[in-house]
């Protein structure tokens, strides 16, 4: 049988998404409350950020608007993982209860099939908030605007997203080997909070860890340097799209390897 094309997967995803949104909208209260919840989460996150900067005018040579830029950048970069890969949080339970086996019987990509099941609409609020923050700080920093900058922005946002997705995939796939793997995913999720700070503020050990071990520095810091500090872009920034692709591919392989090894509980 021939391999299914990318277009095929887009079509299927669109259909599932459209239906899923329709059914979510039908639960109006739930929809409204979760939207409000998302707004509050973002506002609270912003307030703590703002309070910090009321007390320190700059952190390690990073001014308020630059930090805000990083903050907005990381919010946008974290949106795809929230919207499209949220089912990773359920993976552990599915695997543990044996329900995961149902995903193994379809003639389509297992990873796709599993992730397509959940679309988390809350991510959209986060995206809009991040976009607002980014545009505002962009303006205040007087970075100027050109088509090339926009292109760079898009490429580096995508690679930043891929890094986070890869981190989450790798963390989620721990459940294929471990009984109680929640803490792995939870740990990675907590680590992403550090992504919105310039990696230079950490000690050299953590700088190394955040770059090469748990590469959260690729979620906001390295890619945004391309826009923020165009005169002193380190090599790692330019490498971030490649790092992202390689890392995503490896995490996907790891996830699939675990899934293929999986053989369920007794029925």
């Amino acid at each position: 049988m021939k391999r299914k094309s990318l277009g095929f997967y887009f079509r299927i995803y669109r259909k599932i998404l459209a239906q899923d949104l329709k059914s979510k909208m039908s639960y109006r209260a739930d929809f409204i409350i979760s939207t409000i919840g998302m707004i509050f989460t973002n506002v609270a996150g912003f307030i703590s950020f703002w309070i910090l900067f009321q007390n320190f005018p700059s952190i390690n040579g990073w001014g308020y608007y630059e930090m805000l830029f990083l903050y907005g950048f990381s919010l946008i970069a974290l949106t795809p993982v929230q919207c499209f890969f949220d089912n990773n949080w359920n993976l552990r339970m599915r695997v543990y209860s044996g329900d995961f086996i149902k995903y193994c019987f379809r003639p389509i990509n297992l990873f796709f099939y599993f992730q397509s099941e959940v679309f988390d609409i809350k991510g959209i609020g986060q995206f809009l908030f991040g976009l607002g923050t980014l545009i505002y700080s962009w303006n205040m920093l007087g970075l100027g605007f050109s088509a090339l900058m926009l292109l760079k922005m898009i490429v580096f946002l995508i690679s930043a997203s891929l890094v986070m997705i890869a981190l989450q995939n790798a963390a989620a796939s721990a459940c294929f080997w471990m009984q109680n793997s929640f803490f792995v995913l939870d740990f990675i999720n907590k680590m992403k909070d550090y992504a919105k700070y310039p990696v230079t503020i950490f000690s050299s050990i953590f700088r190394f860890i955040f770059t090469f071990v748990i590469p959260i520095a690729f979620i906001a810091y390295y890619p945004s340097l391309v826009i923020l500090r165009p005169d002193e872009v380190p090599l790692l920034s330019w490498l971030s799209p490649i790092v992202a692709l390689v890392f995503f591919f490896l995490s996907y392989k790891l996830w699939m390897f675990g899934a293929m090894k999986y053989n369920g509980t007794g029925a």
Partner: peptide, 19 residues
């Protein structure tokens, strides 16, 4: 997978939220 269909008595394989 294209050739087979599978049903588990107590685990639905349908999309939970969809008609």
């Amino acid at each position: 997978a294209q050739n087979i269909g599978v049903v588990f008595g107590q685990r639905t394989q349908l999309w939970w939220a969809l008609p």
